[in-house]
Amino acid sequence: MEIMADLCVDIAGLRLANPVLTASGTFGYGLEYQDFVDLSLLGGIIVKGTTLEPREGNPYPRMAETAQGMLNCVGLQNKGVDYFCRHIYPQIKDIKTNMIVNVSGNSPEDYAECAARINELDCIPAIELNISCPNVKHGGMAFGTTTEGAASVVKAVREAYKKTLIVKLSPNVTSITDIALAVQDAGADAVSLINTLMGMAIDIEKRKRILSIGTGGLSGPCIKPVALRMVYQVARAVKVPVIGLGGISNAKDAIEFLLAGASAIEIGTANFLDPTISVKVVQGIDEYLEKHSFKSVKEIIGICE
């Protein structure tokens, strides 16, 4: 693959060879995709959500297909941060791209402890905090749905984590801009948005909700317009870099997010339909820049009026 333009972007000191990342929960640990993609061609890989303790996740069924998208309620199944450090990190540390760990938790202390363990790993230059998890001590409302809840997690993690801290925002809020400002003030280096939109599917023959826990997160092309609007608004409100995601399926979608103000983008559900889509998007961005005589991808970030 020959790249003509300068695709390099900077996320609060974290240098990405290009603005294309893969979204947590859709790309495993990268290893699952290495038959299809030269992983070194990506700007970075955000690996599966990791928690302090191992989690079994929710019961099956965890997925429902929808029009131009899907719902999932996987429930953060993972073997815990110790297992990650001991068994997975050695397998991924030499992958020649930015390996970023997505971190989840039940309490600010959990998040901070998990982040502290990952802070020790030399080849992990950044974490992405998933603040859409329920706050177990405070009635199970997601941390990311209030400015106080979001800030409490980010503050705790900021003290424990010294490298690039990206905070992934939930769209299931009244004002995502207020949450973005709150996490910026609490010490986030960057924000990524949007996480999945809460949804539901019903089987009319069984007259039951399809997902085991009733609701799940909606992803795929159907959420792209919502995500794009939120990225546009947040990018204009915050000083920190914004990473855009939500239904990006091709280079055109990715360019829309860059124009809206995202400094980088994440590809999620689209990886399921075409496991090679991430590198195709890198190439497509390059072709767009060349066609329109931009020398660097930085020139198009946020230039949409």
Binding site: G25, T26, G28, Y33, R62, M63, N72, V74, F272
Partner: peptide
């Protein structure tokens, strides 16, 4: 299944 590759953890 969604991904078929062991990435999404939907088909457990």
């Amino acid at each position: 299944m969604a991904c078929g590759l062991g990435a999404c953890l939907c088909c457990v």
